[in-house]
């Protein structure tokens, strides 16, 4: 762990300014443009009318939440494999953004479901497994806040993240079984071509913002980690008593 820590610390100490905030501003501008394009360009839906517009925020949030969870799983796996602190910090950052996106997906799904299906919530496989995903993200973050030792927190949360990732398809499958055995029809998805491009553009815009948020959060985590390391190294040299 020694070398990589020193490199991390050195990189953070020497880097003068983080250039990523401009990417965030760009991401917000792109998101505004994508939403305006989506709202203006697409015709109202035959059944839903303008309610279809909610798709442009709901679906990108859902897709990107999955992506964030994938990042958590991959970074966790790499942490268990290589033991580099950076991977743990990346997993934690992606988990925080992912939890936000999953929560947003659920909220938007409810707002969309009420006028179209007539209910705020239904025990449908996709909905239910998204809710479970949300709970697992939150449990992951709570676990991190309850463990103080760095190595222990990193190792444990990597394991919890991986097992959570393993659980998502299992939950989805079991809930689908639960519902289909009870004879619930699920409608097939057909998306008219006039909606696909606005949807894609919005998904990319949200992805850009998500990437920015994860990288920004990650660099903040590295900064915090560096500050802790400086204090630890000083304590090892016997200077800790000065503070």
């Amino acid at each position: 762990m020694g070398v990589s820590v020193d490199r991390l610390v050195a990189a953070r100490v020497t880097a003068p300014r983080d250039p990523t905030p401009w990417i965030g501003v760009l991401g917000i501008v792109v998101l505004v443009a994508a939403q305006v394009y989506g709202v203006i360009s697409s015709p109202p839906d035959r059944d839903m009318g303008h309610l279809q517009k909610i798709m442009y925020v709901h679906v990108p949030a859902a897709w990107n939440a999955m992506l964030a969870f994938l990042v958590v799983a991959l970074a966790s796996l790499r942490y268990l494999w290589k033991g580099r602190p950076a991977d743990d910090l990346l997993a934690a950052s992606a988990a925080e953004v992912g939890a936000l996106l999953t929560g947003l997906t659920l909220a938007l799904g409810m707002i969309w479901g009420k006028p179209t299906w007539g209910v705020w919530w239904t025990w449908e496989p996709r909905l239910t497994s998204t809710a479970v995903l949300f709970f697992m993200f939150v449990a992951y973050l709570i676990l991190r806040s309850f463990v103080d030792d760095f190595e222990r927190r990193a190792q444990w949360s990597a394991v919890v993240g991986l097992l959570g990732a393993l659980n998502v398809p299992i939950v989805y499958m079991s809930v689908r079984w639960w519902r289909t055995l009870h004879q619930l029809q699920s409608s097939p998805m057909t998306l008219d071509s006039s909606y696909t491009w606005p949807l894609r553009v919005n998904a990319v815009a949200v992805m850009l913002l998500m990437a920015f948020a994860i990288v920004h959060r990650y660099r903040t985590a590295v900064t915090e980690y560096t500050a802790d390391e400086l204090a630890d190294h000083a304590a090892l040299r016997g200077e800790g008593n000065r503070v």
Binding site: V138, V160, G164, V171
Partner: peptide, 10 residues
């Protein structure tokens, strides 16, 4: 329970 119950659902 926070860690266990979501995993327990299936």
């Amino acid at each position: 329970p926070l860690l266990l119950f979501p995993m327990m659902i299936p």
